[in-house]
Amino acid sequence: MSFPSRDDLIDFIYDEARMLDEGRFSEWLELWMPEGIYWMPLDYKQTDPDCVTSLLYEDQFMLRLRVERLNGARTFSQKPKSRCHHVIQRPFVDVMDAEANRYVTNTSMHYVETRLDDQFLLAITATHELCVEGGKIRIANKRVDLLNSDAAFGNIQLLP
């Protein structure tokens, strides 16, 4: 594939959500471009990722660390493991620029994470910057905005 269709992009977003829900995190890492950043702002409509605290602003080193940690023998907060569940609305394709190899989607989701007797729900908007590399759609950057980003949370351990 060199020029994805609108449906290809939308299917990609659904596939990614399913991958996370099924805990296929190593496979998920392979979706990323090497310079890709996963950003979850702390402030509602935050514009500065560097000099204001975020919940997550992670490069591939940190994401790999996250995934390997989930599988570690002494990862105490993952005994037992968390599970997650995405319910997603059909993504908007906001940018479809084949010439620049840049595609942007905007997806509303309900994200549920659970462990032991606790379960919580996050209403989120995910913005994916996508591109095509080696014939496959890849994630150039991903931004996840929580509707209640300024609320106090307990542990959020997996990746919305």
Binding site: M40, L42, D50, C51, V52, T53, S54, L55, L56, Y57, M62, L65, R66, R69, T75, F76, S77, Q78, A152, F153, G154, N155, I156, Q157
Partner: peptide
């Protein structure tokens, strides 16, 4: 320089956030 603040912001999210891998294990304890 802003780079100092950028490091501080990074420390805060890596160690003190509800999404922090370090924080997760502390809270668990």
């Amino acid at each position: 320089p802003d780079q100092l603040l950028a490091r501080t912001a990074m420390y805060n999210r890596l160690i003190n956030a509800p999404t922090s891998m370090v924080g997760h294990d502390d809270l668990e304890m």
